[in-house]
Simulated scan of single mutants.
Amino acid sequence: MSAIIIASVEGAVIMCRAEQSIAPLEAVATEIHDQLGHALPDRPTPVTRHGRDRLPIYHPPSLRSRNAHA
């Protein structure tokens, strides 16, 4: 499972750079969260991603400025 997570994040980072957007990384984060929820159903989840509490997402300054003008 860890290899899939790492490959997914690496691919999302490449797509983020190509698209100059953080949307691919956010999509992958949501999918990883969902998959881990299915793989570890008995473990408590401190944060949910669907419409409730969310962790703040770090936006590097270079992407923040690009997304603000998009």
Rank of each mutant, 00 (worst) to 15 (best):
S2V: 15
R43L: 13
L55Q: 05
A18C: 12
M15V: 15
I22W: 01
S21F: 01
S65H: 13
S2G: 15
R17C: 15
L63P: 00
L55I: 08
L55A: 10
P61A: 05
N67K: 12
V13S: 06
V13K: 07
S62L: 14
I14M: 12
G51L: 02
V47C: 01
A12F: 00
V47S: 00
R66S: 09
R54W: 04
D34R: 14
A39H: 07
G11N: 06
A7F: 04
H33V: 05
R17V: 15
H38P: 09
S65Y: 13
H69W: 11
A7V: 06
R66H: 10
N67D: 15
R43M: 13
A39L: 12
Q20E: 13
A70F: 10
R66Y: 10
P56N: 04
E10G: 09
M15S: 13
R64W: 08
D53C: 07
I4E: 15
E26L: 09
G37D: 01
P56Q: 04
E31R: 06
I6S: 10
V28A: 01
M1Q: 12
G51A: 03
A3W: 11
P44E: 11
A27K: 06
T30W: 08
M1C: 11
L40A: 09
A29K: 03
S2K: 14
A7E: 14
V47E: 00
P56M: 05
I4Q: 14
P60R: 03
L55Y: 01
E10P: 08
P61S: 05
T48A: 11
E26Y: 10
G51Q: 02
S65Q: 14
A12T: 01
D34M: 13
G51Y: 02
T48K: 07
A27V: 06
E19N: 09
I6F: 08
E19L: 10
V47I: 04
S62Y: 12
I32R: 00
D53P: 05
V47P: 02
S8F: 01
S65L: 14
G11H: 01
C16T: 03
I32S: 00
S2N: 15
L25M: 07
P46W: 02
A68P: 05
